[in-house]
Amino acid sequence: MLRYTALTLLRMVVTFFVIVTLVFFATRLSGNPIDFVIGQGITKEDRVLLIRYYGLDGSVWTQYLSYLRAFTDGQFGLSFLERRPVAEIVAERIWPSTQLLLTSIALTMAVSIPAGILAAIYRKGWVGSAVMTVAFLGYAVPNFVLATFMVLVFSYVLNWLPVVGNGTARHFIMPTLALSAVLIAALTRFTRNAMLDVLEQDYMRTARAKGLPERLVILKHGLRNASITVLSVLGLQVAALAAAGSVVVESIFAWPGIGDMLVRAALTRDYPVLQFGVLTVAIAVITINTAVDLAYAWADPRLRQTGRA
């Protein structure tokens, strides 16, 4: 286990480093970022001044080194637009994003785990087909289309829910639903498949044979064994899907989170913010994935041998 943990952590650090490096060189390859932001109508002297102000003078290597140094002293640069440290801007946005993500995950688990179990037990009946059809629709309907229709119906036609911001609990309803749809679809499918695998196992027959009530058989012997698979999927898939989804959903509902910030930064070409934002989310996702990897290996010793989970 120790060896496996060390290898997994090492791989995580290497991935960080590769991503950090790629981000830097991709940014520099596209020319001097100052030209994008300032454009025409600036004197040569001012341009030089600005380039020095943002630390863009010096060779690529010195820039790269000072960029790497930021990871030790926390000086990640200033936003082109807001003229304040990007770390500060990103820090303000972490909590709203986390809140939205947590409500979405709570809703996802509350819906998908029962739905997945039902779909597995009644896989041939109408309950099973109904659950799988809804799960399919969750995949097939893009989140921005779902969000747009929700806004149209619940805000403009019925006038029930607010569209913009995160002020009250009512503000959470539509963004949470829009973000959860695809997560619910994914997790329901995985829960169903994991339960189907478990239901065929011998120990389920044994549990029934010794006279346990069906509910106990399903929940204690079935769900508990399926839950390892389900939780690992929750960690791996949800991190990626939520990162992608929150970009779109936060932007639609002007939710003051990281996703909304990334889109704004991309639209206004605010490189430092975009760069630091992308790195933050990437690091968060990789950390979650590594944690899931380790938890999975801890729960299932067979995985430690292979070296790759």
Partner: peptide
Amino acid sequence: DTQIAVPFTLIALFLLTI
């Protein structure tokens, strides 16, 4: 592995900006 580690929406946002 590196590409799988990062959600693609982030890569796309980044590339389209630069």
